[in-house]
Each structure stands twice: as C-alpha cells, then as structure tokens.
Amino acid sequence: MTHTKNWLNSISLHLRIALIGFVWLCSYGTGYAQNDTIILKNKDRLIGEIKEMDRGVLIIETDYSDSDFKLKWIDIKKLSSDQTFLITLKEGKRINSKLQMDSINGGRVVLHDIITKDYIYTTIDDIVYVKSVKQGFVSRLDASLSIGLNLTQSNNFKQLSVRSTLGYTANYWSVAGSYNAIKTRQDESEDINRTDASLGLKYFFNHDYFINVSSEILSNNEQQLKLRVTTKAGVGKYFVHTNRVYFGSAVGLAWNNERYEEALGTNRNSAEAFVGMELNMFDFKDFSLLTNAVVYPSLTESRRVRSDIKLDVKYDLPLDFFIKMGATYNYDKRPPEGANKEDYVFQATFGWEL
C-alpha cells in the first residue's frame, strides 16, 4: 500500500504539468455572433462563425448546434465572411484579410490585405491556413493531452504515460511546446523514469522561410541521464506546404548541457551543429502522422554524434477525442563510460484536443 501511495505521489507532478492550463483553456468560450455563409458543392448551406481552417479542415460554429461543424476545405463551393483572418498561402505568404470566394469565376478567392491594401486573387487550393484574428487569446491556442495507464496485480506493476502539446499562432510567429513522460513502478525492480519536453519559437518570412529558436530537455534511466538541456537556433524552410502535407528542414547551432547520474561521475557541456527535418501528414481519412528527426554532430567533442527521432500516429474519434501511438528514439555515439548509447520508448494513449 505504501509503495502504491508513493508511486501516485511521484506521478502527480507530471499530471499537474500536463494538465495546468489545459483545463483553464477548456473553461473559456468564444462568443462573437457572425453571419459567415458557406455553400458546399452538394448545395448544402451553413451560416455561423468561421473559427479556423487547418490541415484541410474548416471549423464553423453555429447557433443551432452544440458541436462545431467540420468541413473539408476542398468541398466548399462559395464562402463569404466579413471577419478578418490570418491567412497563409501555399508559397508561404502570410496576410491579414477578409475572405470571399467567387463561385461564378471558377472558385476564385479574393483577398484584401488590410496592411498593404493590396487585392490578391488566388484559389482554394493555394490557401493552407485560415484563422480568425477578431477572437481573443484563447482562439489562437492549440492543445492536446493524452494519457495511458497500465496496472497489473503481478509484481504490483504500474505505468503512467503522458503525451501533450500546446501551441499559439500569431500573425508572423508561433510558439509550440510539448511534454511527454513515462513513469513505471514494479516490486523488486528498478523504477523507470523518462521525461522529454520542448519549447520553441518560429518567426516566418515569405516563401516559407523561418527562424527557429528552441530549448529541449531530456532525462531517462537507460542512458543514466539526469538532465540534458539543448538550446538551439537556426533557419529553415518548408519545401512542401499544402492542405494535406507539411515538409520542412532546418539547420543551425546548439549548446548542449548534460548532467549524468552520480555513479558515472561526469557532466558535459558541448557545442553542436544540427540539421533536422519534419514531416506532417493529415486529412488522410481519420489518420494523421507527425515525425521529426534531428542529427547533432558535435563541434567540440571528436567523433561524437547525437540524434533524436519522434513519431506520432493519431486516429481521430468523435467529439475531438483521439487515440495516439507515439515513439521516441535517442542515440548518442559517444556516451560516458558506463552509459548506454540509445534509449527508445513506445506509448499508446487516449486523449482530447482543443
């Protein structure tokens, strides 16, 4: 009983970190009466408030339904709204504009940049992101939280898995963070603890170029790593940016600070270069896939190379619930003597997203 109580106390911090802010976000609502009009290719008509279009799916809130409607962007024939939106085009151009779609002229979309006052004529396929900027702070947030729990009587086995994300999108920049953790307890066996988290800022330019500044932390038993903090800065570009796929890459420099278990008797500080890629695939039925890989060749330690790889596959359920399968792999070609070169984890979780 004491063992179980201690285990529950030890995981409470991880749950609080993942849940803080998330419950706060869910307690807020948005309430601007709008008369945005959408006509679909099958001639169905919806009137309400357009909230967002991301990853090929448009979300609209109506007075006659408790749940938001989700529509495929490519199924829209005509659209009219007096709201101002943050709109991203396929070539990476980001503008603030009202949104009008002219069904008479082959589905041409007319945009009016409120900053430059220019009129832009484009097509529905060239628009990859739309978000209302008349709403408040909460409307610009994206969040998800998924949890997995395993309990068995044999050896009093207990395991908690947490995977979470939180992001904010402004006109020309975005902030994204993540927090993932696994804690395992078992009688007559060493506890397993693993935590990785990240926080990053991107500033976007034309043609899908961006500057990226981020910090990542990692701790795990397998590599006897008490804490690794990697701070990096670089430049990148999205080579593919559509309503179904994002693919980009970034390069830059990083500073790596590591603290190992006392038994190893060593700590490290090193400078590194990095090159990374990210692939985000969505709107493939109810499935989506996100993977990124980063390689860190050391600039101050001879022949040392590290790499971090992450993969998430998500299956969407009704009411914004989902099932997620996640995998993370960490490799270090030259770890301290007595530590393993690699660590990996697979997580299956159930969650909800904002």
Results as ranks from 00 to 15, higher is better:
A33I: 09
D283T: 11
K51L: 15
S144V: 05
K90F: 00
V275Q: 08
N105Y: 02
G351P: 02
Y121C: 08
K5M: 01
K131V: 09
G338Q: 08
L290I: 01
T328S: 04
G167A: 15
A271V: 12
S10L: 07
R303T: 13
K324H: 01
N267V: 04
R244V: 09
E261W: 00
I47F: 07
T328H: 03
E258I: 07
I76M: 08
A254K: 01
K232H: 07
G31I: 06
L160D: 05
D126G: 04
F137Y: 06
V213Y: 01
K43H: 09
A233S: 11
D54Q: 14
N340P: 07
Y203T: 15
K134Q: 12
K226E: 11
D286S: 12
A143Y: 03
Y119E: 13
R304D: 05
N206G: 11
E353K: 15
K314G: 03
D312K: 13
I147C: 09
S302H: 01
G234E: 04
N269G: 08
D66R: 13
V109G: 11
Y168Q: 05
N221L: 03
K202Q: 10
K5F: 02
M281P: 02
T2C: 02
G248I: 12
A250G: 00
G276T: 10
D343C: 10
L111G: 11
Y168T: 13
V251N: 11
D208P: 00
F350I: 15
R194E: 04
K232I: 03
Q100E: 10
K51C: 04
V133E: 06
R45Y: 08
D283A: 14
Y129D: 09
R55L: 01
Y64Q: 13
N269K: 03
T266D: 00
W24H: 07
N105P: 05
L79D: 05
K232A: 14
A176R: 12
V313Q: 09
H241F: 05
D68L: 06
N180V: 10
L145F: 00
Y179P: 03
S154G: 00
T88Q: 10
E222K: 14
R268T: 02
S288C: 04
F346A: 14
I120N: 13
I20K: 14
V345I: 15
K324I: 00
V23N: 06
F69C: 10
D332E: 09
I309A: 10
K237N: 13
L151S: 13
I114G: 08
D82M: 11
G136T: 10
V162G: 07
A293F: 02
E301K: 13
N42L: 02
E342T: 15
I182C: 01
E216M: 11
V245C: 04
S65Q: 09
I95H: 04
K310S: 01
T165M: 05
I47Q: 14
G200Y: 03
L290R: 14
R163W: 01
Q224D: 06
N292C: 06
N150G: 10
W352G: 08
N150T: 13
S164A: 05
S80H: 14
K202V: 06
H241S: 13
T349H: 05
G252K: 07
I11A: 11
K314Y: 02
G29T: 10
G234I: 04
A263I: 15
